[in-house]
Amino acid sequence: MTDWFRTRTERVLLLTLPALLAACAAPVAPRTESARLGQPVANHERLNVFPDGRGLPPGHGNVAGGRELFARHCAACHGDAGQGGTAEELAGAKRPLNASSPDKTIGSYWPYATTLFDFIRRAKPMNAPGTLSADEVYALCAWLLHVNGVIDGDAVLDAQTLPAIPMPNRDGFLRIEAP
């Protein structure tokens, strides 16, 4: 034993030196050990409807039914034919997207038909959002897509047919900062 190990402290230091060096070189884990207070849940509400149709509920609706619902719930702000009023225009685009003052309607601008269901179900009508049945939302989607010239007047929309609708401006977007 040499002079370097005179005290217990020195002996401990020397013996643990390799471990100390390794600890310094290892990545630091600064995160405080947090509380884990989340409660497991299973049957919670899910409102998101994705472009592939995931999230769409059972049910169906047609153009005629949607025309009636639109007149009752939507026309006061969006106009009888969705041409706009105190709220924005939804249909009847005349000026193309590359014009200086373009018309951005559902038919001319919206890239996915599923967005209509997602938005109407959660947000419309504005005086009572979230109160329309799945059938009513499908019907409103049908009327809005028909008045935009995207689907025929005899179309019936459901969880299979709605996501399959090719929207005219599907490829009109440049994903700037998306992964």
Binding site: N48, V49, P51, P102, P111, D118, F173, I176, E177, A178
Partner: peptide, 30 residues
């Protein structure tokens, strides 16, 4: 909700996107 894809909500498609003179629109400009 964690997902493999964006939901393409109204506010990330019809709104908060920027039309360019070409007629194409910038999307996900965060």
């Amino acid at each position: 909700e964690l997902s493999a894809q964006p939901v393409m909500s109204r506010n990330e498609t019809a709104k908060y996107t920027e039309l360019l003179p070409s007629g194409k629109a910038r999307q996900f400009t965060f």
